[in-house]
Design a protein around this nucleic acid. Structure first.
Lengths: 216, 216
DNA sequence: CATTAAAGTTAGGTATACCTAATAAAAAAT
DNA sequence: ATTTTTTATTAGGTATACCTAACTTTAATG
């Protein structure tokens, strides 16, 4: 009778993340993100619907309030795990995502509380994403991708896409980490690179990469 | 093709523990410990046999070298997790077993290393059981249950059965924790209680409980 | 508007790990 | 030595979560 909660959690977490870029989440997008076949996802979505965690809207899947709440719990556990890994266990920020993907399903509410307390209730994960609080409240700021800044505009890095270790390593090597100020010196035309200035140094940054960095 | 490694790990861990009290482990004992039906265990044991982790001897199951090695890895992760929970995250020793049972399957070799390092390579779990080292070497001491001490004999508590939170809480309240010296004042006949002296205080301790405490 | 392409779902099938009920084998007790 | 009891295994069945291949629906385009 008891479901494999970690699969459910994985789906809800993915849906939550994907809906932020595009509201109702398509089966195919979800399948791609979860690295599963479309029919598998189609089937599982039906099950989640039956459990009242998700519903089908026009062109895709949406979370119900209950689904959203569970998703945020998982995200809280994920991001707290990441902070545990970096701040206490000495991991680098590029090493923690996959590790946290496993941990997030093995953490009880009690452990969640202990981690949060030991870390001093951190507000964000190591990549700058906000950690939902116990009640699922999530601090949201109006941010834009670095790739949308115009020449001579400045921004403060708030967060960075966290799922690609190689990119994270690269960004850290350039000093492109949260709370750092970046200035866009030039924007090359036809989707070309941005020339950015970080802590006195200049780098050419591809648009694709720059779009993964959110600034305020 | 890929098995649910956490189920395999759980079985091997149980077999490893049970074989210490009674060498070839019986299906029924294993089923009882894992809280599963005998046929389920019977079937799974066959699968583990097929994977070369286990073999059937006269009256029960034994671990192969590979199985033993994997079991010790799981036990290492379990006990390191327990130390993480108590020493870093502020849990009490009676709260960590179940938590660690979940964590042990979600910990990568890298995380294992980071935990061990952050804790200063602890030799034992919070209940006094040795933590196997990276190569699977396990410090073994000749110990006996407190229940086997005769009147006026003394012992130093080395470890305590860790799976029952209530008992752990009770023992801690009496000061019956690792490294503490206990003196048996009297042993009541017909399987009656032991009167023990711990840090100046005297307690009557049931035989059953005393048998869960190992001393040297 | 008809065709092609993309997206989604059914249909049918697999593996894992569990279950109960029934049976077989081994051990203990009379 | 036979019966009883315990222990182990087969047989048959369930649920979960995945798959591929085929089909259907929806959208995009000539």
């Amino acid at each position: 009778m008891e479901a494999d909660t970690s699969r459910t959690e994985e789906y809800l977490e993915s849906i939550y993340k994907l809906q932020q870029e595009q509201h109702p989440v398509s089966t195919s997008r979800l399948a791609e993100h979860l690295k599963l076949s479309a029919p598998s996802v189609s089937e599982m979505v039906k099950k989640l619907t039956g459990k009242g965690l998700v519903f089908q809207s026009e062109r895709g899947v949406c979370l119900t309030d209950e689904g959203k709440s569970l998703a945020k719990k998982v995200i809280r556990r994920h991001r707290l795990s990441e902070r545990l890994l970096t701040d206490i266990l000495g991991f680098n920020w590029d090493e923690v995502h996959d590790e946290a993907c496993r941990l997030e399903h093995a953490i009880s509410p009690e452990m969640e509380d202990h981690i949060a307390k030991s870390l001093g209730n951190p507000r964000t994960c190591p990549h700058g994403h906000p950690i939902p609080d116990k009640d699922g409240k999530l601090a949201k700021e109006k941010l834009k991708p670095l790739s949308e800044l115009k020449a001579r505009e400045k921004g403060i890095i708030v967060n960075v896409f966290e799922e690609d270790p190689k990119m994270l390593k690269y960004l850290a090597s350039l000093g492109l980490i949260p709370d750092v100020c970046v200035k866009v010196e030039e924007v090359a035309p036809f989707g070309g690179p941005l020339i950015v200035c970080v802590a006195g140094a200049r780098y050419a940054l591809g648009r694709e990469v720059a779009s993964k960095i959110k600034v305020k």
